[in-house]
Amino acid sequence: MEINRLQDEIVEEFELFDQWMDKYEYIIDLGKKLPLIDSTFKDEQHLIPGCQSQVWLHAEMQEGRVNFTADSDAVITKGIIALLVRVLSGQKPEEIATSDLYFIDRIGLKEHLSPTRSNGLVSMVGQLKTIGKNLSKAH
């Protein structure tokens, strides 16, 4: 599915929550469920250090599409990563590079992707886009 369709889907899902608690409980749930990354990639090389929480990111190309996995030591960060994986993993590199991730704002989680949070998420999205850009040039 294309990136914006997936984003809209998430926005619709979040419209069901009118309490902040429900929203965060859902994110925490997402964060808890998935072993997001193969443990061999949870190393220094894949680490995106943040002041508050750390993120590990691994990306690989498969049949013209970027599959990525990531993890974090904080469960809320991890839950947001799960949403980003859902939207961006399996997409074409050039689409990742040019994507506009508006869903984060629409579901009221904008502050988590602000540089001031320094939870590693901003750098992670930046790195993903760079990977997308580099891979699309390589083709």
């Binding site: 902040w20 608690m21 965060y24 925490i28 508050q52 929480s53 030591d73 904080a74 469960v75 809320i76 960060t77 988590h112 939870n119």
Partner: peptide, 12 residues
Amino acid sequence: QHPFDIGTLLDQ
């Protein structure tokens, strides 16, 4: 628990 998660939920 990670301090970041606690801080986020207190902020809410």
